[in-house]
């Protein structure tokens, strides 16, 4: 416990702020129904009511409670973004390690496939797939995981290649260790530090990406609450000076800043320990 307090004390203010934001979001993510005062799709009053004690953030374009929608939106948006990031990380790490450990044709083939996927601009790639396959959460998860996986693959492969030429890996090979041991015990642990920071960055990317797609009307479909679509639904009111669309937009920004601050701190730590 004391150690934890000490650790937190040594964190810079910005990273601490980021950590609090992340924890807050995770809390809301887990406890959404308990926190939300109304139902997710429940119409509770007039359209675009101003902020009040009953409706903390007012109501939206068809009279649903904004605060409730944002709380439930956390579930959908963060949940799917996390799921995608996990899938992308899992597959990207395994493939990247495999390419670096096995080299030869495995590396060549994987490398070429990734090159092709990355030659597409990501948003355009996603839009084209969505136009063909239609927009559903499954398609979203598959497409975004694939897009993200290629970036994780590149990083893991590059880091693992650097580790792979280390004499301790050669020593393991000369001992007669098999492929799995070399990959799992010798290479993987040494590629972890940069991967942790990368996880945060990839999460931000996916999270912003889904929000953008939803904003364009191609991500989550109504009536499910998610932050990107909420911005879209309430955007029309902006020109009348009604800030309803800014609430979901600012929670998106807040969470991304939080994650980025923590990532920045992690990267700083790593570059310091490298010296």
């Amino acid at each position: 416990m004391n150690q934890l307090v000490n650790f937190l004390k040594r964190m810079p203010l910005s990273a601490l702020f980021g950590l609090v934001v992340i924890l807050l979001n995770l809390g809301v993510f887990c406890l959404a129904p308990a926190i939300a005062p109304f139902g997710e799709t429940e119409v509770v009053g007039d359209v675009w009511l101003p902020m009040s004690t009953i409706h903390l953030l007012g109501t939206d374009h068809i009279g649903r409670d904004m605060f409730t929608r944002i709380v439930y939106g956390a579930r959908n948006t963060i949940g799917v973004a996390l799921l995608i990031t996990f899938i992308a990380f899992f597959s990207g790490t395994i493939l990247g390690l495999a390419a670096a450990t096995m080299k030869g044709w495995v590396d060549q083939v994987l490398g070429r496939i990734v090159d092709i996927v990355m030659a597409f601009p990501p948003l355009i790639f996603a839009l084209m797939v969505l136009s063909v396959m239609g927009s559903s959460t499954t398609v979203l998860v598959v497409v975004l995981s694939l897009l993200d996986c290629t970036r994780v693959f590149r990083l893991v492969r590059a880091v693992a290649m650097d580790v792979e030429v280390m004499p301790y890996v050669e020593a393991a090979r000369l001992r007669g260790e098999g492929f799995w041991w070399v990959m799992r015990r010798e290479i993987l642990p040494n590629t972890m530090p940069p991967l942790i920071a990368e996880f945060g960055m990839r999460f931000c990317f996916v999270f912003l990406f889904i929000s953008a797609l939803s904003f364009l009307g191609l991500g989550f479909q109504p009536p499910a609450a998610d932050w990107g679509s909420m911005v879209r639904e309430n955007a029309g009111a902006i020109t009348f000076g009604i800030p309803a669309a800014l609430w979901p937009a600012s929670v998106i920004a807040l969470l991304t800043i939080g994650v980025n601050l923590v990532v920045d701190w992690l990267l700083n730590l790593q570059s310091k320990s490298a010296h």
């Binding site: 280390m166 004499p167 301790y168 050669e170 020593a171 393991a172 000369l174 001992r175 007669g176 015990r185 010798e186 642990p189 040494n190």
Partner: peptide, 21 residues
């Protein structure tokens, strides 16, 4: 494995010859 066992190697840079983890 038996052949590999009988032939061992020590490296130039001890810093990178052992897995830091």
């Amino acid at each position: 494995r038996e052949t590999l066992r009988r032939l061992q190697m020590i490296y130039q840079m001890p810093d990178v010859a052992v897995n830091p983890c």
